[in-house]
Design a protein around this nucleic acid. Structure first.
Lengths: 210, 210, 210, 210
DNA sequence: CATGAATGAGCTTTCATTCAT
DNA sequence: CATGAATGAAAGCTCATTCAT
């Protein structure tokens, strides 16, 4: 097993508070500048501490970045984990998943952008941190959808396309917010609110078997 | 100052060739590192010239970046400009637009990512360069769709949501390619090919009036 | 004030053990990186304790360095102190001194290198620590040799040159070991063993009066 | 003196001047602090330029260090190269080599100390730069001495010991100058002058066959 | 006693940019 | 036109040291 050496040290209470300060600042800065564009000076300043203090908690820039990314991905996987067969209706199950994804984007737009930025730039810093927790869950859910398709319980769709299009649409309001703010400034808040009212029916219509 | 100082100088043939070299290199580097993460040294090296030579063509880093962005946006607007009433059927008109957007993403993934990166980071360097050419066209097309909706020629949808969801889905395979490559490595080429086969019917189903 | 503030504090048994740990680590690190190149972090790590713990025993980096140096010099003076008139023959007296110096270099190569490094760099940190204990003994022994020369009991030589050449040759295998290891790798151990067999006869031939 | 061209050489002439400035400063600083203890800031300041300017000529600290070291070693090898069979008498041939080594130490004490410091610390930065040019010449000369010994033209000595003791004694006045200055301050200049008067007869006596 | 926590100063290096040629 | 040369600013990171616990 490869040792996870970029996890924060064993934590006391003060340590955990400090780490949380750093996380918040790092989220801000990394999500708006990307890894290379962000500076740990800026993060430290925003976290209200000196740069060496920050580096006392995270050995270097990469370690901090990967720690945030790891945490973000775990958060991100929550809605996907909850996608299963507990409810009777696969269509509604997927619609509920979409709803949860939208809520997550609404509540954690910085995390969404951080993740998007990393992917956009080719995932150069965290191949394992990204895919290790993601891959298994992804394929399990893809299989689940595939079974639903084959059982005729949802319409005939490629599960990969379905999943990726859900991700694209549900994260779009977080990731491309600046564009929406520029193009539809007075609609921005209502669009955030409405997103589910648009997307959920769209996918319900798509998925409902004829 | 409304002086447009980041446009490249008037160019001879040789100059235009060198500018094109710079464009290609800059596209590569900016799209994979973002504005702050990219270095003009790296761009100059990749373009096969010295940094001062590069700066002879573009006054500074921002000017180069904005020039590329401007060019990218113009390219990007092509499919949207072509969305109009020439064909008789609005549903098919929009489907054709989706098809063109997908083709564009397929052919110009770096441009898509460059644009996405800029938006993701809050459009800090090019508010005007992005929105000046985009805004008018966007609103014209939104109005057009709105008229189609009001005339009952397409189903009742918020044109903003419709447009944004089209953008999200059609650009996703370019912008998030690294994720798809990691999660569905053996499906990657077919997904690129299939994208229209999934998306166009989805939107046709959504838009076709009942 | 002639306050000696870089001597270690009065010590319990446990304390003396920890000091010894520090000494050993510091000897390693200082002798291979010099004063400025060495870091007390590295020393503390190698001594198996935290840096503040190390600094509890030695007030600062200089104090630690000077303490080691002082100790080393005392060790170093042992062979020289034993150079006197107890044996009847001055030539053999000096040959015995040479033998003792060689043995010392063999047994304490790190100490030799530490000392050599300090001198090489101009003795910037420990003028007094080096010369205070050394000077008197040195001049006493120089006078002794001078008397031997004047009494015709050893050949006519400048005592200074004699002493320095003895120091140079007897310490060379310790101080320049890396060079010898590179140039005569398979001879290295035998050269260490042989050193006295070469040097003692050389000086005996030089010193025996005609 | 024999300057030939003008225009095309000009840039590299300036470059060589600048490099020489840097060399002199670097020699000073590296020889008195060792590699890790030296700072390129200090070197740049002493060379009268900014640190980035220095790094324009030498890509990084190591490159600068190795360049000086390489140059020093070439200088150092001069006297050894000249050790051969041209003069009829091997004893005098070796004595002449000793004389040349002493002269070199006298004229280039900083170079001697730089070299000594690198060896003292275990040659961590320049194994190849040190040994590549040194090894072959060393072994050729060792063989030469060995033949002289076997032919009975010099006394029976291990060539390795002989060579190392010559190196030790001839470089000692440069490398350990600070110690001599401290112990024999009023003798320092005369000792420098006398060194050959002491060492050459010593080795002549040692080497002359009985 | 021992260490977790903190930081100013300094390190090596890269960056965007200017200027003379 | 093109580049060698130069640099202030800022980057990531290490260092010796202090202090509270």
């Amino acid at each position: 097993m490869t040792q996870i050496d970029d996890a924060p040290r064993k934590a006391s209470r003060i340590q955990r508070e400090r780490q949380e300060q750093i996380f918040q600042a790092a989220l801000d800065v990394f999500s708006t500048h990307g890894f290379r564009g962000a500076s740990i000076n800026q993060i430290a300043a925003q976290a209200g501490m000196s740069t060496p203090s920050l580096l006392y908690y995270f050995n270097d820039k990469q370690a901090l970045y990967r720690a945030i990314l790891r945490r973000t991905i775990e958060l991100w996987l929550g809605p996907l984990h909850a996608l299963n067969e507990t409810s009777g209706d696969p269509v509604e199950e997927i619609c509920a998943y979409i709803q949860r994804k939208i809520d997550m984007s609404r509540n954690f737009p910085r995390e969404s952008r951080l993740f998007a930025a990393e992917i956009l730039m080719g995932i150069p810093h965290a191949q394992d941190a990204v895919f290790e927790p993601l891959r298994d869950t992804f394929h399990i859910k893809i299989s689940l959808i595939d079974r639903w398709v084959n059982a005729g319980r949802i319409s005939q769709q490629d599960p990969h396309h379905l999943m990726y299009s859900i991700w694209a649409t549900t994260q779009h309001y977080a990731d491309f917010e600046a564009q929406i703010a520029g193009l539809s400034p007075n609609r921005l808040p209502t669009l955030w609110e409405d997103a589910d009212a648009f997307l959920v029916p769209m996918y319900r219509k798509l998925l409902t078997p004829t």
